[in-house]
Amino acid sequence: MLAAALAVAGCHNSMNSVQNAQQVGQRTMISDQRVISDTGLARKVGVVGINTVTTPGGFLKVQAELLNQTGSLQTFNYRFEWFDLNGMQISDSASAAVAAEINGGESKFISAVAPTEAAKDFRLKLILGK
């Protein structure tokens, strides 16, 4: 009985959260285009919305809000790709898939800064971890 309770408690990794009701900061949300080839992944690590800002250094910064609609911890990898005005991908020598975790029911933000001021567009790739 105890072992079963521990097993259930161990596998179930959900989260509650609280925040100030009157949010001061206003996010500049952008419209996005989505390509979903794995609906299971979209439920485990779904994109709620994306907002952007230009940093003091003049670089595009992108922030994505993710939501895990399942009740268990999910591991995933993400990577941002950047494109210039002509739609050409900008070679980024320092770009790796980032490993991340998201608890059951958790909303989480991930962000990245463009490698050059020439980067005007982006693509976020999400891959389910092991």
Binding site: T55, P56, G57, G58, F59, K61, D92, A94, S95, A96, A97, V98, A112, V113, P115
Partner: peptide
């Protein structure tokens, strides 16, 4: 290698975003 890339990517982004180099 992916750790070096990730660390470099993150910190370069933060440095550029800070505007300190400008």
């Amino acid at each position: 290698i992916q750790d070096y890339i990730q660390a470099a990517d993150t910190m370069t982004g933060e440095l550029l975003a800070s505007g300190a180099l400008g």
